[in-house]
């Protein structure tokens, strides 16, 4: 898997967020995007995940030498972010089941059980997400992101809302992801930056 971003530029309502961002990211790589608040870290992550379009510039995704169309890129990537929400009225299992089915995940039920157990949410699967605490919701977002074994994992603020046990589990996940696949995170935490092979600093 490879992501190539050329001359990315983003403006919101005429205000420049960033410009001239060039990236080339291959397998077994972890990129950390850093910068002050409002510098555009989250925006860059969202652009790379194909959730918003850049004002200028181009992103290409390749898998096994063949280009992947933007319409199919969702099959290869997952995102964990404080602004990304799951369906509050549905239970955790219902959320994971629907989203997993849409992601064409095989052996979905066993994966749900395994990941819920790993993130300490076993026994809470059938509770509505709106009854979860913010830390539990963050753990559930990791379960959702990992259920499809993504080729590219985007993580915005990896430690957000997590306790020590949650942070340890997340670091294990980050380590596994960068071993074989692509990990792109937006963070300013020194602990998180230890996992990065390359740091991209955005100054806004």
């Amino acid at each position: 898997m490879q992501i190539k971003a050329e001359n990315l530029r983003k403006e919101y309502n005429g205000r420049l967020i960033f410009k001239n961002i060039n990236l080339e990211i291959g397998d077994r790589t972890c990129i950390a995007v850093t910068g002050i608040n409002g510098s555009g870290k989250t925006t860059l992550i969202r652009i790379l995940a194909n959730l918003v379009s850049p004002t200028m510039g181009k992103i290409t995704y390749q898998s096994k030498g063949a280009e992947i169309s933007k319409e199919k890129i969702h099959q290869y990537c997952s995102l964990v972010s404080p602004y990304l929400e799951l369906y509050q009225d549905l239970t955790a299992r219902e959320n994971l089941w629907f989203l997993g089915k849409l992601k064409k995940v095989e052996k979905l039920d066993s994966k749900i059980d395994r990941l819920m157990n790993r993130f300490g949410l076993k026994g809470r699967e059938d509770e509505a997400v709106k009854n979860y605490s913010s830390g539990m919701k963050q753990r559930l977002k990791y379960v959702f992101a990992l259920i499809s074994d993504p080729e590219i994992l985007f993580v915005d603020e990896p430690r957000s809302n997590l306790d020590d046990h949650g942070i340890r589990t997340v670091y294990e996940v980050l380590e596994e992801q960068k071993k074989n696949k692509i990990l792109i995170m937006a963070t300013n935490e020194k602990e998180d930056l230890k996992y990065a092979d390359r740091i991209v600093r955005i100054d806004g």
Partner: peptide
């Protein structure tokens, strides 16, 4: 309003 549009964008194509 519930910020789930991005979640949906991450799992399927617009036509669906």
């Amino acid at each position: 309003e519930t910020h789930t549009a991005d979640t949906l964008k991450l799992v399927t194509c617009p036509t669906a």
